[in-house]
């Protein structure tokens, strides 16, 4: 995968609104055939990033290249190869699904192609109905259908699971993987829920207050979040002893937790002995992906009290 050419390259990207930085020092690449997920809570900068990619906004600093072009200066050319489906899906309420698919794409879809895409998103039965009668999930599907005529090189989906029922979310994941398999298109997904994307994304970029706090695959995220769980004779004393030696030490009522990657068992043992604390038991704890994600965000909140505004 890493050998494939990069369709999207973001370097040191920053975007400021007044004194507030919505994005800062962001680096990211999306290669051909790759599915990358942007994950982060509301306000983390996902939408700003997608708008910059779509050429709706200019970066304050850094560069963005989509297919080698600057989307702000060359939006039309970029849109020939990339498709965006923004959230919430805004469509024309008076037009039918069919009319959207006929009139909005730059190249009119053939009736066959239209039918195929409508079937793909599960809207064949409602093709001639005005969009004002559609549920959020149906609008979401139509928005996706619009982005697939014709099938682009890069598909950018903003919160694609919003409004979909759990079955439809699973179906969407399967469809996206199928689509990638058939066409080798690249997909950039944005979501505020890791669960929505973890099973489909090759790589995840976690955004927090405009910064990329993690970029890698899900295994790397899990690994980074592993800890030693130390059952000790005196939890409070152990915490005091370890937190002065290791970062991100935490405790609960029974044990103290030390980051797995950033600590060595002999050093831990040494520190505890020096403090007169007995180590009764220890083992490695592997959190769920969701827990790892939340932990990462919490750590960022604790360790970086102010990333913005920029001073």
């Amino acid at each position: 995968m890493s050998e494939a050419p990069a369709l999207l390259t973001i370097e040191a990207l920053g975007r400021r609104y007044g004194a507030r930085w919505a994005l800062r020092e962001l680096d990211l690449e999306v290669r051909r055939g790759e599915i990358v997920a942007l994950v982060g809570p509301n306000g983390s900068g996902k939408t700003t990033l997608l708008r910059i990619l779509a050429g709706f906004q200019r970066p304050t600093e850094g560069t963005v290249r989509l297919f080698g072009k600057d989307p702000w200066l060359d939006r039309v050319s970029v849109m020939e190869q990339a498709r965006f489906a923004f959230a919430p899906p805004a469509l024309y309420p008076g037009l039918t699904a069919n009319e959207h698919l006929t009139l909005l794409p730059s190249t009119p879809a053939s009736p066959r192609e239209r039918d195929r895409v409508l079937e793909w998103v599960g809207l064949s039965e409602r093709a001639h109905e005005a969009v004002r009668n559609f549920s959020l999930g149906m609008r979401q599907r139509l928005s996706l259908a619009l982005a697939l005529i014709p099938v682009p090189d890069l598909l950018v989906l903003d919160e694609p699971a919003d409004g979909l029922d759990p079955l439809a979310v699973i179906e969407l994941r399967e469809r996206l993987l199928e689509l990638r398999q058939e066409t080798s298109l690249s997909i950039l997904l944005s979501s505020h829920l890791l669960a929505d994307v973890e099973q489909v994304a090759d790589r995840i970029c976690i955004l927090h207050e405009g910064h990329a706090v993690f970029t890698g695959n899900t295994e790397e995220l899990e690994t980074e979040s592993q800890e030693w769980r130390l059952v000790v004779s005196d939890v409070a004393a152990a915490w005091d002893a370890l937190s002065s030696h290791f970062p991100l030490v935490r405790q609960d009522s029974d044990a103290v937790y030390v980051p797995w990657e950033r600590s060595e068992p002999p050093l831990v043992r040494e520190a505890l002995e020096a403090a007169g604390v007995r180590l009764l038991e220890f083992h490695r704890v592997k959190p769920t992906l969701e827990a790892a994600f939340l932990k990462l965000l919490r750590q960022r909140l604790d360790s970086t009290p102010t990333l913005s505004p920029d001073r």
Binding site: R51, F56, R75, V76, S77, M79, F86, P88, A147
Partner: peptide, 12 residues
Amino acid sequence: GTLPLLLSRPVS
């Protein structure tokens, strides 16, 4: 909210 829909096409 439909302006992004219009501008997400290869149309100037």
